[in-house]
Design a protein around this nucleic acid. Structure first.
Lengths: 343, 343
DNA sequence: ATATAATTTTGACGCGCGTAAACAAATGAA
DNA sequence: TTCATTTGTTTACGCGCGTCAAAATTATAT
């Protein structure tokens, strides 16, 4: 490799023996130039390893190749994992993803949208905070920037929503628990941050109605995104005061369940299917840690890959279509029941 | 707020009644203009909410206000948490942080460094993969870009290293375990990804020597960053084959310990301090989940805040100094012993 | 070989802002 | 009031690249 004295595209073009506009075209889309010239450019690229100035590029391009990825809470490995998959897909498609976390905070979510505006991204994949989101601000953002919502829906906002089918989650867990033992009560936060929680409650009630069973909602206090601690404290209270109407508990999500398990252990209550166990516990999400809890969590798993893939594919379609889709799409993927030790 | 027809700094300057160079100066450092003009600019800013084009800005500025944050594995909440704190500090200081995760993969780490180069950041906070890192590439990168290493050190590379004092971690856990029961064996991966693991092993051996106790290393197989599963499989093997030399186990890190606990539960082995427990388990890191395991983990905690703060402060000093520090600094923060249920 | 389509070249302009130098104005202390 | 000092203005250039139109070249098909 020769020494890298190339200062700009002009010099590189000269070294290639190809005009600068053609080089520029190549960098926007390598397929837009004839194969033979592409080969020549790529040969020179290897020899001199020139890279165009991204700032000059993005300043002048009609559309950047940037994609914004926004998750509500990165300390939750669930989001870290989904962000990883989405990142990969974007890079493979020739885009430059940038990851943002709202860290459970409305003002940070708004600040991120503000930053994203000035990044002029080709598109954005946004998992909103949910109840804590400033819907008006998000709506306005989505009018300006091609955006796909995922994980957590806001009705009518964004070009599309891709997520999981909460009814599919709950129906499977409720059916399984009811079939194999006593029917479950539903353990959840009183004021859940995420709209999926509400959908799950409704699904629980509906399933219990269909099965002709009496529903029991167990609502616990707590705010914020520290679900494990909220679940632990809530479970301690419920267990100590004997407020649990059944010996089978279905948690709204795995992180609450992790806290619930912790409380049970503190109180010496054994959880699982064995004879010496007094409680069965199941949950939803298939959180990356749910197979390492004690006992491991019976849960309903997201189809991570399907959600990620479809969100990204939809975004690419949206970008290709110039930022507008004919109608707003909503796609939900079914859950898969994962039977483990806790129920 | 008036309608936002402002296309560039010229127009905004005209509306302000202030010359463009002064506006430009203001955006680089609001304190560099007289208070009265600053007030006028900020009043106009509120009325018209103009924001300079970041691409044009960064193209021409001698130095951008960007800061790169690189962590080895974002699905580990430990890194998510530290990244959150660092992000906050950078924003508060007027910088624009961008978060990257190597996802445990060498080629991705290199790709990130490549991306960072073309971002021309004022500075970078880098937590390397460790053993999997391409040291030569990182070294070359650090020659070009002002970089502070954190969490995982590479001798002589980067302007400074900020991390935790592994000896402080291990000395406290070993001392505590030995004082309150039988002395621990050390449970770790055979080929740990992270150099801290080696430091911890040495610290364990040294502490056992000082206490005049016989050391026992228990090395398990496994590669990659799925430490919980590695710990679980390793513990199953060790426990089934009766290879555990003592009833007290000190794991190299919490994620291995989480896997260990999972294995114990599968085998019906009770862990903790109670009479019916046959194993005591302790560990290091104070992973965000370690207080929710069953039993909760006795561990040595990082001083997250101190590490984050000092890393960021050092980076700011480095930037102010023009990218070079007189001598390479290494700062290690002591651990705090967190006594919980497992030992 | 010729007509046609596809691709590249040439030359030029503009994007929005940083920056520099010479000058003008405001400030503040003596 | 005076003068030195700080701060702002004017003017002008350059950064590296996108993009456009017209001309020149090349590839493909007939």
């Amino acid at each position: 490799m020769s020494q890298n004295n190339i200062r700009n595209m002009d010099e590189f073009a000269a070294l290639c023996g190809i005009s600068r506009p053609t080089i520029s075209k190549y960098f926007f889309d390598p397929n837009s130039v004839r194969q033979s010239t592409r080969d020549r450019i790529e040969a020179a690229l290897k020899e001199y390893d020139y890279r165009p100035n991204i700032y000059a590029m993005n300043q002048n391009r009609r559309l950047t190749k940037n994609i914004g990825i926004v998750v509500p809470y990165l300390a939750d490995p669930f989001f870290a994992e989904i962000a990883r998959v989405i990142e990969r897909r974007c890079i493979d498609a020739g885009f430059t993803p940038t990851l943002f976390s709202s860290h459970g905070d409305q003002s940070q979510e708004i600040a991120i949208l503000d930053t994203l505006r000035s990044l002029r991204p080709a598109g954005v994949l946004l998992a909103p905070l949910g109840r804590a989101s400033d819907k008006a601000q998000i709506e306005e953002f989505c009018r300006d920037v091609p955006t796909i919502l995922f994980d957590s829906n806001i009705e009518g906002v964004g070009a599309a929503f891709v997520g999981s089918d909460n009814f599919s989650f709950v129906s499977q867990t409720v059916e399984y628990l009811s079939r194999t033992g006593s029917s479950p009560c539903f353990f959840e936060m009183r004021n859940p941050a995420n709209p999926n929680a509400n959908k799950r409650r409704h699904a629980y009630l509906e399933m219990m109605r269909r099965l002709n069973l009496e529903p029991h909602l167990v609502k616990i206090d707590g705010a914020g995104w520290g679900f494990e601690e909220i679940g632990r404290v809530g479970a301690l209270k419920v267990l100590k005061e004997g407020l649990l109407p059944t010996d089978t508990v279905l948690c709204s999500n795995d992180r609450l369940a992790i806290g619930f398990l912790s409380a049970c252990h503190e109180l010496g209550i054994r959880v699982g299917r064995d004879k010496d166990c007094t409680i069965r516990l199941a949950s939803h999400d298939d959180h990356p840690y749910s197979r390492f809890t004690c006992p491991s969590l019976t849960t309903a798993a997201h189809d991570y890959e399907a959600v990620s893939d479809h969100a990204v594919e939809t975004l690419f379609r949206l970008i290709d279509a110039g930022g507008k889709l004919e109608t707003r799409e909503e796609t939900l993927f079914a859950a898969r029941l994962i039977m483990r030790g806790s129920a």
